[in-house]
Computed example of a mutant assay.
Amino acid sequence: MKSAHLSLLALGGLLLLGNAQADEALAKAKNCMSCHQVAVKVLGPAYKDVAAKYKGDAGAVDKLAAKIKAGGKGVWGEVPMPPNNVTPDEAKKLATWVLSLK
């Protein structure tokens, strides 16, 4: 029985890891990584910095998804982020992934 529980925990961990990798792959496919990286500021802020800024903000996923979809300017400096060609579902997946980074 103990090994069954451990197997389920391992499977759950792999599924979570798989989702995170899929969401990072989506960020790469949508060219987000041209201006952002996980841990280092490039043209835009590092995703870990974005996650830290919005930590504890219950509305952060929706706020970031809207910015990903429509673009934005002024929160992280004067360089604008252009609108991105993503569906609302993709924008929400990307926002959720960014906010999960620590």
Results as ranks from 00 to 15, higher is better:
residue 2 K to N: 12
residue 2 K to L: 06
residue 2 K to Y: 11
residue 2 K to G: 08
residue 4 A to R: 13
residue 5 H to W: 08
residue 7 S to H: 04
residue 7 S to K: 15
residue 7 S to Q: 13
residue 7 S to M: 10
residue 8 L to M: 09
residue 8 L to H: 11
residue 9 L to D: 05
residue 9 L to E: 06
residue 10 A to N: 05
residue 13 G to S: 06
residue 14 L to G: 14
residue 15 L to N: 03
residue 15 L to T: 12
residue 16 L to C: 12
residue 16 L to S: 13
residue 17 L to V: 08
residue 20 A to G: 14
residue 21 Q to K: 09
residue 21 Q to W: 14
residue 21 Q to E: 14
residue 23 D to C: 07
residue 24 E to M: 07
residue 25 A to G: 10
residue 25 A to N: 14
residue 25 A to P: 01
residue 25 A to K: 14
residue 26 L to S: 02
residue 26 L to D: 05
residue 27 A to T: 02
residue 28 K to Y: 09
residue 29 A to P: 00
residue 29 A to R: 14
residue 29 A to S: 14
residue 29 A to W: 03
residue 30 K to Q: 00
residue 30 K to S: 02
residue 31 N to G: 01
residue 31 N to P: 00
residue 31 N to M: 04
residue 31 N to F: 01
residue 32 C to N: 01
residue 32 C to Q: 02
residue 32 C to L: 01
residue 32 C to H: 01
residue 34 S to N: 12
residue 34 S to Y: 04
residue 35 C to V: 02
residue 35 C to W: 10
residue 35 C to Y: 09
residue 36 H to V: 03
residue 37 Q to Y: 03
residue 37 Q to S: 15
residue 37 Q to A: 15
residue 38 V to L: 13
residue 40 V to K: 12
residue 40 V to N: 09
residue 40 V to A: 07
residue 40 V to F: 09
residue 41 K to Q: 09
residue 41 K to A: 05
residue 41 K to V: 10
residue 42 V to C: 00
residue 43 L to S: 10
residue 43 L to E: 12
residue 43 L to H: 06
residue 45 P to L: 03
residue 46 A to D: 02
residue 47 Y to V: 02
residue 48 K to V: 15
residue 48 K to M: 08
residue 48 K to L: 09
residue 50 V to I: 15
residue 50 V to A: 07
residue 50 V to T: 06
residue 51 A to E: 05
residue 51 A to N: 05
residue 52 A to N: 04
residue 52 A to E: 12
residue 53 K to W: 03
residue 54 Y to Q: 04
residue 54 Y to D: 07
residue 54 Y to T: 00
residue 55 K to N: 13
residue 56 G to Q: 03
residue 58 A to E: 06
residue 58 A to T: 15
residue 59 G to V: 05
residue 59 G to S: 13
residue 60 A to F: 10
residue 61 V to T: 07
residue 62 D to Y: 00
residue 64 L to E: 03
residue 66 A to G: 01
residue 66 A to K: 13
residue 67 K to Q: 09
residue 67 K to A: 13
residue 68 I to F: 05
residue 68 I to P: 00
residue 68 I to R: 05
residue 69 K to Q: 15
residue 69 K to R: 10
residue 71 G to D: 07
residue 72 G to M: 07
residue 74 G to A: 10
residue 74 G to F: 11
residue 75 V to K: 04
residue 75 V to C: 01
residue 77 G to T: 04
residue 78 E to H: 05
residue 79 V to M: 13
residue 79 V to D: 11
residue 80 P to H: 08
residue 80 P to F: 07
residue 81 M to F: 13
residue 82 P to K: 12
residue 83 P to N: 09
residue 83 P to K: 08
residue 83 P to W: 08
residue 84 N to Q: 13
residue 84 N to P: 00
residue 87 T to C: 08
residue 88 P to R: 09
residue 88 P to S: 08
residue 89 D to Q: 15
residue 90 E to L: 13
residue 91 A to W: 00
residue 91 A to E: 08
residue 91 A to Y: 01
residue 91 A to K: 03
residue 93 K to P: 08
residue 94 L to P: 03
residue 94 L to T: 02
residue 95 A to T: 01
residue 95 A to M: 11
residue 96 T to V: 06
residue 96 T to A: 15
residue 96 T to R: 06
residue 97 W to Y: 15
residue 97 W to A: 05
residue 98 V to M: 12
residue 99 L to V: 04
residue 99 L to H: 03
residue 100 S to N: 14
residue 100 S to E: 07
residue 100 S to M: 06
residue 101 L to M: 10
residue 101 L to A: 00
residue 101 L to T: 03
residue 101 L to R: 12
residue 102 K to N: 10
